[in-house]
Amino acid sequence: MKHIFSALWGDKDVELVVGQLLRYGVVTASVVALTGGIMYLLLHGSGPVPQYGNFIGEGAGYTTFNGIFKGALALNATEVIQLGVLILIATPILRVIFSLLAFILEKDKLYIFITLIVLCVIMTSIFGGLKV
């Protein structure tokens, strides 16, 4: 019984770190998005509202990692917002990676395997060229 409890405590410490991580991720994402948003409004705020009723899709500058990073470094408003979006998407993925580390620490082979499957699915959707 005792070793079960110690395992639980280990779990909880990792969970606390993960909780912090989630909070920082969300805060960073919103700060970045807010910065971009203000820049965006300064540029386009006085103009007419874009026609969102027609779907056109976004250019490569907004949709590829390279495009977003380059644009954000050049301080383009829209790319800064998309960077915030990227950070937001990355937070839950980071959480999965942290859980993987936790399972490795616990030497729980079954769950190391299960977590790896989940990570693989996510990675496939990122790099798998699913851009249809």
């Binding site: 971009g36 969102y52 917002i81 998309q82 990227l86 998407i89 959707s125």
Partner: peptide, 20 residues
């Protein structure tokens, strides 16, 4: 949501003007 969000982002379904 993150798993499908990447697909949507790469396909250009996320507009900065709406996103922020």
């Amino acid at each position: 949501a993150a798993a499908s969000a990447v697909v949507y982002l790469q396909r250009g379904y996320m507009d900065p003007g709406i996103g922020f």
